[in-house]
């Protein structure tokens, strides 16, 4: 608190931004650099190398050049998994973020029972990749599940959503939206980070609540929206556990939930084709990396930083 008090006493002036905090950067980044060098870089490099080999985990890898990469595009299951993954990512991520942001705004402050609501909405996200999820999901989207029971009340005959190739991916996306707790918490934290002074200044200026939202909350929340967008995209592209658990491990029915990473895993550990899996991983990295670069470039136009 002392710094803050000193601060408030000191007369503010804008000091020239100093360039070159090299030594300080080294100090602050030291753990990360060590981790990068010792733990992250080696295995990443190894997987890059393995992506150019025929490697079955049980015997030594053999160099095959770009074969794994060229093989991918002749593999119908690979092509299918890309389609499944893009659908999954571009439908469920926006929905999940919208739900998270909406509820975060609703649950931000000034209401009774907030802590309770927040916790209740977060509970599903606590389950993680529990094997129980598969069973729970069948209780909702199965042939005799909750959804169909509700539909039956309206005289609509439902069907086994979770096990129908046309709808299974939809239930998986619903599962992803259902666990919007993580981005919601980040949004909540972001809302709390917005300095009160902005609101006061705005209300002195006579801004309506909606205008306060538009000109204070939203712009100041953009770094967090941006963060959630970038990270949820990265995560959604790598979604694995839920698809694995819900589909019983094979991306079924009939490959309709075969997400990219699930296929990669099945190739690497199921078919013992780790070379191919590694190539898939690096190709995925290119996709996600490209997406992230676009995101960062676009962010210049809509993300507001106060610094």
């Amino acid at each position: 608190m002392s710094v803050i008090q000193e601060l408030s006493r000191s007369k503010r002036s804008v000091s020239p931004r100093r360039k070159g905090d090299g030594r300080w950067a080294l100090f602050f980044l030291a753990p990360w650099f060590v981790g990068l060098a010792l733990i992250t870089a080696g295995p990443m490099g190894a997987s890059l190398y393995l992506s150019f080999t025929d490697y079955d985990l049980l015997s030594a890898p053999e160099w095959v050049g770009f074969e794994n990469y060229t093989r991918m595009f002749d593999d119908p299951r690979f092509v299918n998994s890309i389609g499944v993954t893009f659908t999954y990512v571009f439908v469920s991520v926006p929905l999940q973020l919208a739900a998270a942001l909406g509820l975060a705004l609703l649950l931000d402050k000034g209401m009774r029972g907030l802590a309770l609501y927040r916790s209740v909405y977060y509970l599903p996200s606590l389950l993680g990749g529990s094997v129980a999820i598969a069973i729970l999901w069948r209780q909702i989207f199965g042939a005799d599940g909750l959804v169909n029971q509700v539909l039956a009340l309206f005289g609509v005959q439902g069907q086994g959503w979770v096990s129908h190739p046309d709808y299974a991916l939809g239930t998986l996306m619903a599962l992803n939206v259902w666990t919007f707790g993580a981005p919601m918490v980040i949004f909540l934290a972001g809302l709390r980070q917005i300095p009160q002074m902005y609101y006061e200044a705005a209300s002195i200026d006579g801004a309506s609540k909606f205008r306060q939202f538009r000109s204070v909350t939203l712009p100041l929340l953009t770094p967090i929206i941006f963060f959630n967008l970038v990270l949820q995209l990265i995560e959604a592209f790598q979604s694995f556990t839920r698809a694995f658990v819900v589909s019983g491990g094979n991306g079924g029915p009939s490959d309709s939930t075969l997400l990219y990473t699930l296929y990669l895993y099945l190739k690497g550990f199921g078919s013992l084709d780790m070379g191919y899996a590694s190539a898939m991983a690096w190709f995925l990295l290119l996709i996600i990396g490209g997406m992230t670069v676009v995101n960062f470039l676009a962010s210049k136009y809509w993300v507001f930083y106060d610094d």
């Binding site: 790598q238 694995f240 990669l264 991983a281 995925l284």
Partner: peptide, 10 residues
């Protein structure tokens, strides 16, 4: 950005 499944072995 790299799935854990390909780095876990190294």
């Amino acid at each position: 950005m790299l799935p854990i499944h390909v780095v876990i072995v190294p």
